[in-house]
Simulated assay, not measured.
Amino acid sequence: MSEPLQPIVVSGMRPTGRLHLGHLHGAIANWVKLQSNHRCFYFSADWHALTTSYDRTEVIRESQREMFVDWIAAGIDPERASLFIQSQVKEHAELYLLLGMITPLGWLERCPTFKDQKEQLTDRDLNLYGFLGYPVLMTADVVLYKANAVPVGVDQIPHLELSREIVRRFNFHFGEVFPEPKPLLTEAAKVLGTDGRKMSKSYGNAIDLGESAESTTKKIMGMVTDPSRKRRQDPGNPDVCGIYDLHKVYSPPEVLEWSATGCRSAGIGCVDCKKKLLEKLAPDQERLRERRESLLARPGDLDELIRIGTGKARAEAQRTMAEVREAMKL
């Protein structure tokens, strides 16, 4: 297989609602950077949303629209990245089925996420074929576009290694059709929620992208900092503080140093630190809000961008599936 002129990157998100600052600094900001020197395919993983929420499909379509709006507002350029909907490229399902035919059951049962989520999501039934087999669908999503690399965090490497094993098994039996996708390690910025836990919609501790200045200010000013710093004169530890984590992604080095030194020496209070953060965060949120409103005011334009992106993805997927069928003599 010849190497493509530009490395190919594929990534997606499940449409489960508005995106927040954790999504922005954990994934989307990196997607924006990758656009400059990669062929990028970014998709709404609506079929993946069914693996844990098959009985809540009414939220998928609206969440999907909000998600695409958030992506574009945050800097994803539909001219440089193909934005598309997974379920509208039926080749994902065909390749999923074919790869499923050669994937040993034991590989799926050992998948860390399968075991972890079964233990954590006790409020829903996950004894489902779709949930067990989702790593095969994830593999199809990636290799359908012959991706060289997949942007992942360290915790996701085991999932990608499973995809690589499936690719090796396919290529062994049918010939070298797919490249083995390599992990494109991204050091995601740590973003804590307003209560000190990881920012998440399910925890109710998130700050949405483009949230109003009033709401953003209210949430930041009420945000949990170092829980051991009870009084203004007590020294604190910025390394356990969500405000300091946000300073790392919004503030220049001199402000970051001011925040860390002032916290440890009790030279500044938490209110001072929060107000300084808002000097950068609030204007950035306002820019995102304005972009979002502009996009939402032109729903037809957004639909056309996704239609074009889905068409590009479908054309690429059809070429790959022609190779797959020929290799498998189907």
Rank of each mutant, 00 (worst) to 15 (best):
P78C: 09
S163N: 12
H173M: 15
G153H: 01
D195M: 09
P135S: 01
I102N: 06
R65H: 03
N30R: 08
G193E: 01
R314M: 09
V167C: 01
K219I: 04
L278S: 04
E176P: 00
E62A: 03
Q86E: 13
V255P: 02
S2Q: 15
S87I: 13
G153I: 09
R287I: 06
R229I: 12
G222L: 11
T139R: 01
W258N: 11
D195S: 03
E91P: 08
Q233C: 04
V271S: 09
T310L: 10
D123M: 08
V191D: 14
P235W: 09
D55I: 11
H20T: 10
Q233S: 09
S82P: 05
T103A: 05
P227C: 01
R229M: 15
L97W: 11
V69T: 13
F114K: 09
R124H: 06
P4Y: 08
S212P: 14
Y96W: 11
R65A: 08
E304Q: 09
D116E: 15
L209D: 02
R169T: 08
P7A: 00
I60D: 03
G22Q: 04
R80T: 10
R232V: 11
Y96C: 10
P7F: 02
R232G: 01
L209N: 00
E3W: 06
E290N: 02
Y145N: 00
P181D: 06
E257H: 14
R197K: 09
R298N: 03
E66D: 10
L192A: 00
Q35E: 10
D303A: 13
T186F: 07
E187H: 14
E62C: 00
Q156N: 12
L209E: 12
